[in-house]
Amino acid sequence: MNNFFFRINDLHAEVEGKKILKGVNLDLPKGEVHAIMGPNGSGKSTLAQVIAGRESYEVTEGEILLEGENILELSPEERAYKGLFLAFQYPVEIPGVSTLYFLKTALNSIRKANGLDEVDTYEFMALAREKVKEVGLDEDFLKRPVNWGFSGGEKKRAEIFQLLILQPKLAILDETDSGLDIDALRIVAKAVESMRSKERSFLVITHYQRILNYIKPDRVHVMVDGVIAKSGGFDLALELEEKGYGWIEKELTFAGGRDL
């Protein structure tokens, strides 16, 4: 009954007793890129964190299905083994642990969980050297501790570098575009585009339409007050850029009589 790739059904979640997600529904077929846009505080990042499995966000209702399996019962690392990847809005610093070592450990954990042979240091070095260039970073960067002392832009590039290494089935980019200048944005978008394939889906969370000029989405969803209020094609993104989010909020009030 479930040949959908990634599907969210009536998802409700709260943080410290505060309801943030109020019934999210979403269908993301294999090989497609969907964008989620929405005003600040609409629940976009919460959705990303809930999908990745953050425990401090309590899911009160609904399900998240990845290839038919409800991943809400899985730990964050088990979700990673299933091919889920979240590029963080605020990547976390880990002092003293080199990016190279961290990523090698990550890749091998995921490979091991999937019954694949571990990659040795030599092979991994070669892979990392190749991929780090694609996000416009220097090789020395591999030796630096994970996100430690990186500029905002470097952190975002580093997340995409991790994406290139880990080759997930489903990648969620949480406001990867914020804090990037136009050149960096192009580089990041190009790297993501290079990953696009029939076997891989993307959920691009963003506040601005700008990044979507480079990573063209198959569908655009607008999130308002914890629900997907409107969905459409790329045109919808352009419309939002022009008109802002206010009109959707109004539409939502009229349609559902919701208390905003």
């Binding site: 425990e55 730990s75 964050p76 083994y81 979240l86 976390v92 450990t105 990550a106 880990l166």
Partner: peptide, 14 residues
Amino acid sequence: GEDQIFYCNTRGLD
């Protein structure tokens, strides 16, 4: 931090 641990978790480390 919980955030450091979660970050590692999402990368496949228990």
